[in-house]
Simulated assay, not measured.
Amino acid sequence: MIAALVALRAIIAREALRFIGQRSRFVAALVRPLLWLIVFAAGFRAALGLSITPPYQTYTTYEVYIVPGLCGMILLFNGMQSSLSLVYDREMGSMRLLLTSPLPRWWLLLCRLLASTTISILQVYAFLAITALYGIRFSPAGYVAILPALVVAGLMLGALGLALSSTIRQLENFAGVMNFVIFPMFFLSTALYPLWKMAESSELLHDICALNPFTHAVELIRFALYAQFNGTALLWTCLAGLVLLALAIWGYDPARGMIRRKS
């Protein structure tokens, strides 16, 4: 137990030091959603009208609607970037040594997942602080209630990155896989448009968005920002996270997953 806790502390500390040393990563994590908020949302403000739909009690502007989706974007991109670094560490870095340690692999992967999720949550709160300066503010209860939602959503999206990294043999291939996964997940979700908007254009798109795990992660964050509970979103986000984590553990199992395929 002591060894497991030492490994957890070491992995989280290493990820924190790496994040502090890579200031460009922090800036890029904030610039991306801020561009969407300031440029994209401003351009679509007049074209997209949003009706009164939970958790909103009144008509809301598009900038306010898009903020939870941009929080999910930060979690999604950071989870993928963390998995990209894991592919490098697995081949020639510290993770290569950790995977040969007597500690269970599922625990090492969980430690890495917790570390990346912690970094993601800090980035989300930094983004919310900037949006508050921009004029988009939420209640103090919302800033507190969003924390568990960010933990659940971050773990699910980080587990997605781990599952993908277990299938990648070369670092060069991961960027293409990231783009193949990130953009469909983001655009085919409620991050940018509500489900009823999707239903107006295509029932098929509506059904795809409704099945997208990222949609439920975004809705969990959206309701939490208004200090409201969305049980359906929580259930599906947790289920998706457990399935993806199980796939990642299976993929890193030397008897069945990545290492066997390499031999």
Rank of each mutant, 00 (worst) to 15 (best):
A46T: 08
A129Y: 13
V64Y: 06
Y56V: 00
A28P: 01
G257V: 00
L70S: 02
E15G: 07
R105M: 07
T61L: 11
Y252T: 03
S101R: 03
F183H: 07
L150D: 05
A191N: 02
G135S: 12
V39G: 12
L225P: 01
S120G: 14
S201D: 10
L195H: 07
L195C: 06
Y59Q: 06
Y193A: 02
Q170I: 10
Y143P: 01
L192H: 04
Y125C: 00
A126F: 05
Q22H: 12
E200V: 09
F40H: 03
F214T: 03
P33K: 09
G142D: 03
W36I: 11
Q228T: 10
L162I: 02
L235H: 12
T118P: 04
Y59K: 01
F19L: 14
L70F: 09
S85L: 14
I66M: 13
T117R: 01
P54A: 13
F77P: 02
D89I: 01
D207M: 14
L195Q: 15
F44R: 01
A29K: 02
R260S: 06
W36S: 12
L86Q: 09
M80V: 07
P140W: 06
A7Q: 13
G142L: 09
V27H: 10
E203V: 09
R90N: 08
E172F: 02
L98M: 13
A129F: 14
S166V: 10
A153M: 01
F40S: 00
E203K: 14
T167H: 14
